[in-house]
């Protein structure tokens, strides 16, 4: 399990990177943290001619509050998000979800841009990004595009990124102080890929009626999926057990998983229903306590 030969290039700037991508196109691959790419190279499932290592580019490694969102540079590592006070303060669901990404060793090297670019529908960050209605900033020599997760993620391991594009930044909307959240995931063994996951951000008024709901699931469709129908359905309602059961059924109707070794389509469909139900329940309890964000 050794990578095939490639030409290794370490550009000094984003501009140089974009020029290289423009020159080499499909022959090139971007290497940042390498936690998803290097296994693929080791197995020779990918044999790029050029490997462009952006891992130490300056200017893509920041977590900043900018207006209504948190801007996270593509090269920010998972562990930096995990330990960021700004993330904890402004977008706590991200901090909770990130703990599910691989293992400590993976989080110490893996970058957020790499995770998004990989396009794995069972990955945690895309799911959270979808739930929050975040954005992905993609650049090429032609300029920058700001894409919604829906525009960005096309299908299993495939994104809308063109060969000459690179991810610069991910934008996570700042969560309302009044909202609570929950991220739940199940994997066969600890640190393994998610069988299914659900991200929920919830806000209720003083009568415990839902006034805002953002729900997304991962691992059960070709891309992370926002459950708009569910969101609409619970708006203006109280989170009764009955409603939660409806949510579960409705979730099942909104996903179309594939069967694999670890679970049939039917199993995953039911599982994600359970997870959404549980995540909503937890978020509901947290918002009631008013302590949700900081848990």
């Amino acid at each position: 399990m050794k990578p095939a030969v490639f030409n290794y290039i370490r550009p000094e700037s984003v501009e140089e990177t974009l020029q290289l991508l423009s020159d080499y196109g499909d022959d090139a691959k971007i290497l940042s943290g390498g936690q998803s790419l290097i296994p693929v190279l080791n197995m020779r499932l990918s044999t790029p001619k050029y490997l462009i290592d952006i891992g130490r580019l300056e200017g893509l490694n920041y977590i900043r509050e900018e207006g209504d969102h948190l801007s996270v540079g593509a090269l920010v590592k998972h562990k930096d998000i995990e330990s960021s006070p700004l993330v904890k303060e402004l977008c706590p669901i991200l901090g909770e979800a990130i703990r599910w990404v691989g293992t400590t060793q993976i989080r110490n090297r893996g970058t957020i841009g790499g995770s998004i670019a990989h396009g794995d529908p069972s990955a945690e960050l895309p799911c959270v990004l979808a739930a929050l209605r975040g954005e992905i900033v993609v650049a090429s020599l032609e300029g920058e595009d700001v894409l919604s997760p829906e525009e960005f993620f096309l299908t299993y391991m495939l994104t809308s990124m063109q060969p000459d594009q690179v991810i610069k930044e991910i934008r996570f909307p700042i969560m309302s102080k009044k909202s609570a959240f929950s991220f739940v995931e199940v994997a066969r063994t600890h640190g393994d890929f998610a069988l299914a996951e659900a991200a929920v951000i919830l806000e209720t008024d003083e009568t415990e009626t839902v006034i805002k709901a953002q729900i997304a699931v991962g691992g059960v469709n070709p891309t992370p999926t926002v459950l708009e129908e569910v969101e609409d359905h619970i708006m203006g309602k109280k989170l009764t057990d009955e409603l939660l059961t409806e949510v579960r059924r409705m979730t099942e109707g909104n996903v179309d998983p594939e069967s694999d070794l670890h679970g049939t389509a039917e199993y995953r469909r039911e599982l994600v229903g359970v997870l959404v139900q549980r995540a909503l329940k937890t978020a509901g309890e947290r918002v009631k306590k008013g302590a949700g964000r900081h848990e």
């Binding site: 197995m43 066969r188 063994t189 600890h190 640190g191 393994d192 890929f193 070794l261 670890h262």
Partner: peptide
């Protein structure tokens, strides 16, 4: 063989 890597052949960890 469908269980050709540790992504699919699952060895228990310290958590299991």
């Amino acid at each position: 063989v469908l269980t050709g890597s540790y992504m699919d052949y699952l060895i228990p960890t310290s958590m299991e």
